[in-house]
């Protein structure tokens, strides 16, 4: 049986008209229109385009909810296996519409493919869900883009592995997947070094990460009235690790009431961190998270008070993505609790 493809295009590629028709509301035709026709031909015996959704670019972006509602209904009724949109090349509004359509379809469990120029601002909106074939910046590239999109759709449907972005011509989704290589790592390293000596081309397997910056928060005006919270990634937890925080590659954080104790040692804390020698932290957990001297600063009136809860997780092997999630969650709680400043210790 052939798999079913639903195709999305804008007013121009849907052969309704140019900019003057950009305000048209979405329409669905059980026909293969514009790129949908060419695309259908590329599917051969394996699949078929069952219909074309056409919507004006302005309409989609200005009446986003209404447009999506209509489109979702069509998807529900036609129940295609795949939703294909565009390619949008470098058209911003068309790109955003394609992104909106593929994201909605992906949410409904459909496989989704589109095509865009790498600098199309919609790329960032769509790449989490869709495979976006990389196109040139103008429609002249249609004849190159469609075969790539069709090839990927066919692979998605047959279960054949979709190759790397370079092999298949799509924009990387940013997923770093572990795969088996032909040679062991040391051999690849030697080969890479030889390539460098010989001024041959080589490709790094790990492009350096880029870390963003955050605006500097203003200083606390009056420390003696401030509430300061203690946070650590040093894996300090109550004895027995009641919340089962992982010793490496943490998937969660914990918070513990420390209002009744003068130090973590007194509170019976220990470390479960898998990344350092735990002996010194277990002797005195305040060496990792210095609750004791924060409490002392509170007694001496240097600070207003130490926040009731102490927050903790394990920093070793913990993905940056996870730590962003933890920081966002913990920060939200601290903000809502009116905490004025934070000490965060790392091991």
């Amino acid at each position: 049986m052939k798999f079913k493809v639903l195709y999305y295009v804008n007013q121009f590629f849907g052969q309704v008209g140019g900019e003057d028709k950009a305000g048209m509301a979405p329409e669905y035709k059980k026909e293969k229109i514009g790129p949908a026709l060419g695309f259908n031909g590329l599917l051969g015996d394996e699949g078929e385009v069952v219909g074309t959704l056409i919507c004006g670019d302005n309409y989609f972006n200005e009446n986003n909810e209404e447009a999506l509602e209509y489109i979702k209904n069509v998807i529900k009724e036609e129940n295609p296996d795949v939703v294909v949109a565009g390619p949008a090349f470098n058209a911003g509004r068309y790109g955003m519409a394609c992104a909106g359509v593929v994201n909605a379809a992906a949410e409904m469990g459909k496989k989704v493919v589109t095509g865009m120029y790498i600098e199309n601002p919609a790329v960032d909106h769509a790449k989490g869900n869709a495979i976006i074939v990389e196109t040139k910046d103008s429609a002249a590239d249609m004849r190159n883009a469609l075969p790539k999109m069709a090839a990927i759709v066919k692979k998605l449907m047959s279960g054949e592995e979709v190759g790397t972005p370079a092999e298949e011509g799509y924009i990387a989704q940013g997923k770093r997947l572990t795969v088996f290589a032909k040679d062991r790592g040391s051999k690849r390293a030697v080969d890479m070094l030889l390539a460098r000596f010989n001024n041959e081309e080589f490709e790094t397997e790990l492009p350096m990460p880029v870390f963003d910056k955050v605006d500097i928060a203003p200083a606390i005006k009056d420390l003696s009235k401030a509430t300061i919270a203690l946070v650590t990634s040093g894996g300090i937890v109550p004895e027995g690790n009641p919340d089962r925080i992982q010793s490496a590659s943490a998937q969660k954080w914990g918070k513990y009431d420390v209002s009744g104790v003068d130090s973590l040692q007194e509170g019976g804390y220990e470390t479960i961190h898998g990344g350092y020698d735990p002996v010194y932290a277990n002797e005195l957990p305040d060496r990792v998270a210095p609750l004791d001297f924060m409490k002392q600063a509170e007694k001496e009136g240097k600070i207003g008070k130490v926040f009731k809860y102490f927050y903790t997780t394990t920093g070793t092997g913990t993905a940056v993505g996870k730590s962003i999630e933890f920081g966002t969650e913990i920060g939200k709680e601290l903000k809502e609790a009116g905490v004025d400043g934070v000490i965060l210790t790392s091991t």
């Binding site: 870390f211 963003d212 910056k213 955050v214 605006d215 500097i216 928060a217 203003p218 200083a219 606390i220 946070v231 990634s233 997780t313 940056v320 730590s323 962003i324 933890f326 920081g327 966002t328 913990i330 920060g331 939200k332 601290l334 903000k335 905490v339 004025d340 400043g341 934070v342 000490i343 965060l344 210790t345 790392s346 091991t347």
Partner: peptide, 27 residues
Amino acid sequence: MVKEIERYGIPIVHMSTITTISESVGA
């Protein structure tokens, strides 16, 4: 984590040994 907490406008100090990493990641 440091940066995400600071995004809420709360001043935060990173007490860390390998300050080169702190600086790279943007504390």
